[in-house]
């Protein structure tokens, strides 16, 4: 591993100052992804700014929703009574991710910042535009069974690996970030970005900006939620396709609905057109299938992920069915 220096900070301002003035510095939270990337030689910060002592570890109720501090551990969020009561989809998504050991270390902000698990990104002997811009995309024409069917570019077809972020985008979360120029709010759907010509940029954070909190507004879809993650083994595997679905049902009429997918794009993939279609309709298989058809219109296979063109719509329908039944599998 490349040598680095390490500093521990106790205030957000000190953290922001330390990283904004030093291009080779980076924040360290749970370290569950960053340390792996450093060990693999994918990234090599010269300075780690440890933010684990920052006072960003609370879950609080606000007038309009819940505010989750950026350093709250994934396990804490998943098991918090207020989260389970108001946003069961988030709890379910978190529990579908990683392993208990990782969730005990990983933070909310860190989860948002995790990098793709694309094999070509991780292997420094392979081409990857995300890791080494201009070197090419190994996954295009290669082994791309796990890769994107939406929003990919000819530079990158990687997917975002998070389950938590699928739920947060579905729940209209808002990210608060603080930087050298002060604080700003980013709607969750605008936090991550598509690869385009600059796949090395995962999100819209500016240098030195620190995620401090995520706000989730109260909603009416807590009653019928399901997170369905289809993967190659029963636990501890990234999604082939995952779907977060939450419904407000009145006499089987869909009063409100939230839908998002994971494992299909460079960012958590919100399904707003399908939501618009479903709103006001009956919760029937036919309507779910039509919603899935709407979602899949722009989908494009990369070769070995052809099966996702079948799996993705099927998983949307299954997730909606299970959410409507308020069941679990």
């Amino acid at each position: 591993m490349k040598q680095f220096s390490y500093v521990r900070v106790t205030s957000p301002d000190a953290a922001i100052a330390a990283v904004s003035k030093d291009k080779s510095a980076t924040f360290l939270a749970g370290g569950t992804n960053l340390v792996d990337l450093m060990k693999s030689g994918v990234t090599g910060p010269e300075r780690l700014v440890d933010i684990n002592r920052l006072p960003l570890t609370k879950i609080e109720e606000t007038k309009t929703g819940l505010r989750i501090g950026a350093l709250v551990k994934n396990t804490t969020v998943a098991e918090h009574p207020l989260i389970i009561k108001h946003f069961p989809l988030l709890s379910l998504a978190l529990k579908a991710g990683a392993s208990p050991q990782l969730r005990n270390m990983a933070t909310v902000g860190g989860n948002m910042m995790q990098r793709t698990r694309c094999h070509y990104f991780y292997d420094t002997a392979m081409p990857c535009n995300k890791r080494a811009p201009g070197s090419g995309c190994g996954a295009i024409g290669g082994f791309n069974r796990m890769h994107a069917i939406f929003g990919a570019s000819d530079k990158c077809i990687a997917v975002h690996p998070s389950d938590m972020c699928v739920a947060l985008t579905a729940l209209d979360a808002v990210v608060t970030v603080k930087g050298p120029k002060g604080e700003r709010k980013i709607p969750f759907g605008d936090f991550h970005r598509l690869p385009g010509d600059t796949p090395e940029v995962d999100n819209t954070l500016q240098r030195g900006e620190l995620i401090t909190a995520v706000d989730i507004p109260f909603n009416e879809v807590a009653g019928y939620a399901h997170y369905l993650k289809v993967r190659d083994r029963a636990s501890y595997a990234f999604a082939l396709v995952s779907v977060g679905a939450a419904l407000s049902l009145k006499d089987n009429n869909i009063a409100d609905v939230r839908l998002a997918m994971g494992g299909v794009a460079h960012k958590p993939w919100r399904l707003k057109e399908a939501e618009a279609f479903l709103k006001g309709k009956k919760a029937t298989i036919e309507n779910f299938q039509e919603a899935a058809r709407i979602v899949m219109a722009p989908a494009k296979s990369q070769g070995s992920n052809e099966f996702k063109l079948t799996l993705a719509p099927n998983t949307i329908v299954e997730a909606l069915k299970l959410a409507a039944a308020n069941g679990n599998i």
Partner: peptide
């Protein structure tokens, strides 16, 4: 264990991507 034959290199040579069964399986 998958080899990308263009490179002759394994692409999933780690326990995250090479899936041995976990307890839940």
């Amino acid at each position: 264990a998958i080899i990308d034959h263009r490179f002759g290199r394994f692409v999933n040579n780690n326990l995250g991507d090479y899936h041995v069964p976990v307890s839940a399986d």
